[in-house]
Each structure stands twice: as C-alpha cells, then as structure tokens.
C-alpha cells in the first residue's frame, strides 16, 4: 500500500483539468517516471509555481470537479512520480477519481464547507497531513495545533488502495 503522509499542496481553484495536470504534449512518454518534470506545468494560478511548490509535497487539497476533461491516467501517474499519492477535494470528475483508486491512490471528497475552512485556516501555511484509511481519518496539523477530519470512501475503494490497484484484483477474481 502507498503512504499518505507529508506536506499539503493547496490548489485554490475549481475545475482543474487533466490538461493542466499533465499537458497532452507529454503524452508521448511511455514511462510514468518521464512525466515527473511536467506536473501542473500549464496550471496558471495566482501564487502557484510548479517549479517551487510541488517539491516535498504529498497531498493536494483543491476544490470542485478536480481532474475534469481527458481520461489520461498520466494525470495520477504524474502526481504519483512526484510523491503526491492523494488528492482531497470537494468534488472529482468520474474518470480521474476512478483512475486514482485503480492506481492504489486516494481521491477523498469532503464537504465544500470543510474544504473552504481548510483553505482559510491554513492560508499561507504548509501544514503536515496524514491519512489513516483504517480509521477513515485525516490528521492535519500546523503551528502545534492538530485536527482530525472524518471521510467516507467505499469498501471497494479501500480494497483497491490496499491491494495497490485493480489489475491484480480483477485478474484473480474474473
């Protein structure tokens, strides 16, 4: 199972699409590792620099409809090879969400108000975060303060994360 612990990267916008996560010009790569330098290269967001802000981050927190657009699994892969194994958002596009779990990664949906609160509370900070799948709990802390947030994912999603993806599960079951 992958690990879901480290620092948070906040991306404060809805509808971040998979072209922004990994532009199509890099879809000519045939290894996941080769995508590493290009993650979020086309995302134009105030205060965000792909060059400086991705390094050493482990979890993205963003807003609604994250991962919309193209079906490219290169989007989760580009996150994965940069050490970003989880995205927490107020909503996900269907294919992106499924791709994340199919890769044994996490796409956690939280209520819009909770997400909004996190953006306000941690503005200008880089909190530490840990996601505990067994307890369905997000532990987030900054400046010596810690809070715990419950989340919901299905049993099936948990199985995919624990078995590190859908290929082995499907091949042994069908």
């Amino acid at each position: 199972m992958k690990t879901f612990k480290g620092k948070v990267l906040f991306l404060d916008r809805s509808d971040i699409n998979t072209d922004e996560i990994i532009p199509a010009r890099y879809l000519t790569e045939i290894t996941k590792e080769a995508l590493k330098p290009y993650l979020l290269e086309d995302l134009e967001l105030e205060g965000f620099s792909a060059e400086n802000d991705i390094k050493d981050k482990s979890v993205i927190i963003s807003r609604d409809n994250f991962g919309c657009g193209s079906s490219r699994e290169h989007a989760p892969w580009a996150l994965e090879v940069n050490g970003l194994n989880a995205v927490i958002a107020s909503g996900f596009a269907r294919i992106f969400r499924q791709n994340m779990f199919n890769c044994g990664m996490l796409a956690i949906e939280l209520d819009e108000k909770i997400i909004d609160d996190l953006f306000k509370k941690y503005a200008g900070k880089i909190p530490d975060i840990e996601i505990d799948i067994e307890k369905s709990e997000i532990i987030i802390s900054a400046d010596g303060m810690t809070e715990r947030i419950q989340f919901n994912i299905s049993e099936y999603d948990k199985v995919l994360v624990k078995s590190n993806g859908w290929v082995e599960y499907a091949d042994s079951s069908y």
């Binding site: 079906s71 699994e73 989760p76 294919i95 499924q98 791709n99 890769c103 993806g165 499907a170």
Partner: peptide
C-alpha cells in the same frame, strides 16, 4: 479516451476510462 461517450448515439453504454481500466478490459 474520454470522448468514448460518443457511442451512446447508437443506444450503447460507452464510457471513457483510464489506462488501468483499459488494461483490465483488454485482459479480462
């Protein structure tokens, strides 16, 4: 490919998927 939804025009259930779903589709 996300525009696989095009085939619904024929009364088919067709959906775009990522590479892992495609891989399992090819295999199983």
């Amino acid at each position: 490919d996300s525009h696989t939804c095009t085939y619904g025009a024929f009364g088919a259930f067709a959906a775009g998927v990522g590479t892992t779903d495609l891989e399992v589709g090819i295999l199983k």
